[in-house]
Each structure stands twice: as C-alpha cells, then as structure tokens.
Design a protein around this nucleic acid. Structure first.
Length: 112
DNA sequence: GCACTGACTCCCA
DNA sequence: ATGGGAGCCAGTG
C-alpha cells in the first residue's frame, strides 16, 4: 500500500520542530493544513518510517503529556529523550506555554 | 462498503 | 479538577 501524501506533509512539519521545543497533535495538524485532523497526525507518526528520522517524540497532546500509557516504555523513552533535549517535565507534564513550538504559517513549508 | 479503533481535542456536567 | 460524549479522519477487518 502506498503512503498518502498527507503524511509527508505532516512529517515535514514535525521535522521542522526545533530541538528543545514540542508541539501538539492538533497544532501539527493545523500547521500541516489539516485542521481538526489531530488523530491523523498520530496515525501518520505511527506510520512514519525510521529512515526519515521524524522527531515524533516532540509531538505531545494538548494536555502537555505524552500520548502513551504513563509508565509504559514508549512514554518513558519519549519523555527521556525530550528531557535530554532540554524540555522540562513537571509531574509528567510539559509547560506548553513555555515549550510549545510556534509554527510559522508563512513558512515555505506551506506551499510544497 | 460498513463498523470499529486510534500516538486527539473540544465542550459540558 | 475530572469524566463522559461527540466530532474528527484514515486505517483495518
């Protein structure tokens, strides 16, 4: 099965998230031109091949938490990577107000 | 083609 | 603050 072009756009957006910052599924969806498609972002990230080096760990939910069962290996590793990049977790929650990436709507990313 | 699920989010009680 | 319900779109059986 072929990969939908939508995913490539989403991956491109995620890859543009600078180190030390995070973004939410909803925001990534909006920045990608698919407002309201937060779930699609999750699906896209799950389908993202490792070869692309997509920093999926920088994408968290609107609550500032990782979208994995807390205590799980995935959640733990994601949090560990983010902390290693300088993102601070307080009680398992990221201060989105301080770390959320402000996407640039005028980016050339939009018209690809 | 229908129905259910999912790495989501918003709204209201 | 917390939980339930609806809306959302693609993937999967």
């Amino acid at each position: 099965m072929s990969i939908n072009p939508r995913y490539k756009k989403i991956w491109a957006v995620v890859k543009s998230i600078p180190k030390g910052s995070v973004s939410t599924y909803g925001d990534v969806a909006r920045f990608s031109g698919y407002p309201g498609c937060a779930r699609m972002v999750g699906t896209a990230l799950r389908a993202a091949p490792d070869e692309l080096n997509v920093p999926w760990h920088r994408v968290i939910n609107s609550q500032g938490k990782v979208s994995f069962p807390s205590g799980g290996e995935k959640a733990t590793s994601q949090q560990d990577i983010l902390e290693h990049e300088g993102v601070v977790f307080l009680s398992g929650v990221v201060n989105l107000n301080a770390y959320a990436w402000q996407g640039n709507l005028d980016s050339e990313l939009w018209r690809m």
